[in-house]
Design a binder for these strands. Sequence first.
DNA 1: GTATTATTTAATGTTATGTAAACATAATTA
DNA 2: TAATTATGTTTACATAACATTAAATAATAC
Lengths: 224, 224
Amino acid sequence: MESILIIDDEDDIREILGYNLKKEGYLVHTASNGLEGLKSAERNLPDLILLDVMMPEMDGIEVCEQLRSNNLTANIRVCFLTARSEDYSQIAGFDAGADDYVTKPIKPKVLISRIKAILRRSSGSDNSETTSDVQSLVIDRERYLVILEGQEVQFPRKEFELLSLLASKPEKVFDRDHILEKVWGSGVVVGDRTIDVHIRKLREKIGNERIQTVKGVGYKYCNK
Amino acid sequence: MESILIIDDEDDIREILGYNLKKEGYLVHTASNGLEGLKSAERNLPDLILLDVMMPEMDGIEVCEQLRSNNLTANIRVCFLTARSEDYSQIAGFDAGADDYVTKPIKPKVLISRIKAILRRSSGSDNSETTSDVQSLVIDRERYLVILEGQEVQFPRKEFELLSLLASKPEKVFDRDHILEKVWGSGVVVGDRTIDVHIRKLREKIGNERIQTVKGVGYKYCNK
DNA sequence: GTATTATTTAATGTTATGTAAACATAATTA
DNA sequence: TAATTATGTTTACATAACATTAAATAATAC
């Protein structure tokens, strides 16, 4: 039986979510503030935590960071509950290591399908490899795909290798020779604009800001 | 207690920023348009104003200009909030007299560290400074940038190489031949004023005091 | 074998960067 | 002090470096 911990300061929310989740067959714990939530998380080790972002004293983001920094709780799935569609809090949330978010007002049906999705994801990849470290960009060489802000994206081979190289050391500038060597292999001769074009394709898919040009030197990958 | 005024037409933004700043211990005022913001600024004289650039009726740039032209408010720090793509507005913003800008979507943590930096700068300037145990200038060849008093600065290639050379041995005088050899490479012939021009550009960016001329000999880099 | 997708080349546009030239200023020497 | 020399500053221009797009080729799927 899968267990879920609800951390929210509003009684109504805890009650209504708890009711719906129990009806769905989950084991439910609740906590009305961050500290209490952290304790409960450590004690009960739930499969998923529903975490309100805006709470007095300790907010959800801080709670999430604390969860992540504790070995016991570091791998528990976290889903943020956030007011309206504040996309900034979404990003801050993912930075803190959230797996998903749901905006209030919460429709139980929506929430439940999201929860199922999260738990399905986590139970599927039970190997030690793809842990919950929801970075903004993760290279999964085994499945040959990139997880970009929680979204799985597929890339053609060259693009994948190129991105993979750049992202292997964020902020480091890779010069063209080095890139050619690593991605195309030594001895292979390709035209002058080949790298540019692939950079272009990558930028199209992951956003312009993520790959910076350093003129006369090379390119570097930057976490946003 | 330091006070901050938020001027933004979007309710959500005011709310979430206000929430985060209060939590951080600041006294927060808000205004939903330029005119209201100007009034509040004059009345409350905040230490810092967070100012949305894109607002109906009076935009942030105009608000900033008005602030600067009023003696009461002329010295209040201003930080623009701007949508990512419009880098034009960055420039216009600095022209109008902004102290910093932050691009949306806003990560509260980023914003808060920027705010602290701004306020530190402004409070530091009138009393004893020289706070940092931070190296005043660090060359980061891998990332190809220079960290100048904690701020990362990008330089074009020749400027970077030149600064890199000079800063490699502070106080040592490098003569022109040596500089040419190291930065331009042997055999390359460039005009007589080329080095000067590059020195000029460096001084523009890192301050005049840092590179000293030793007439008839060459240049040297000095930590302030 | 055809359709589709991936990769590369080629052609052209754009911009950052570097340089020279012209003149200004400061230091040095006669 | 005037003449000379060294450096500072600004402007404009050339071009290297990169971006972009389209179209050709190669690889893969259907």
